[in-house]
Amino acid sequence: MDKICILCVDDEPDVLRAVARDLAEMEEGFPVETAASAEEAKGLIGEILKRGDRLGLVFCDHVMPGQNGVDLLIELRGWPGLQGTRLVLFTGQAGHEDTVEAINRAGITRYVAKPWERELLVRVARDELTSYLIESGRDPLPLMRYLDQERLVEYVRRRNRVDTGQ
């Protein structure tokens, strides 16, 4: 309940395993879910929202059997319950036009090219989730240790917002 999840969508099981391994250090604060297709992803997101969790971040491949990644991201952007969710295109194969579409219509905030480095992926996840947390207006303290602490304490300083009594 009330957890913020990370979702990775990719048709290659090896990629999903590698991403899950790379993000393992954040797993305790941000459960990592994986889906092998757009259809599976949508089902999974439905479940996440239904159990009262939220989706903070999506890493999405582009070229997949069935619905492609950019179309999936555009569709997700319109979903109720995913307004603040940070979307990242995670691919080596998206063409110029697809990428423009993803930026303009799905509002992706990052593009991570494959092959990727572990450190980059962790940094992107950390940055994006920090932004998600700040924009959602939630108390940032419980999750601060996994995220960009400098940005979050600066947020606390500016907003003077902590959910513990004075």
Partner: peptide, 15 residues
């Protein structure tokens, strides 16, 4: 406020 002060000082000590 003690809270705002701590938050500001944390931005100093994190580096």
């Amino acid at each position: 406020s003690n809270t705002a002060t701590t938050a500001m000082m944390m931005t100093v000590i994190i580096p």
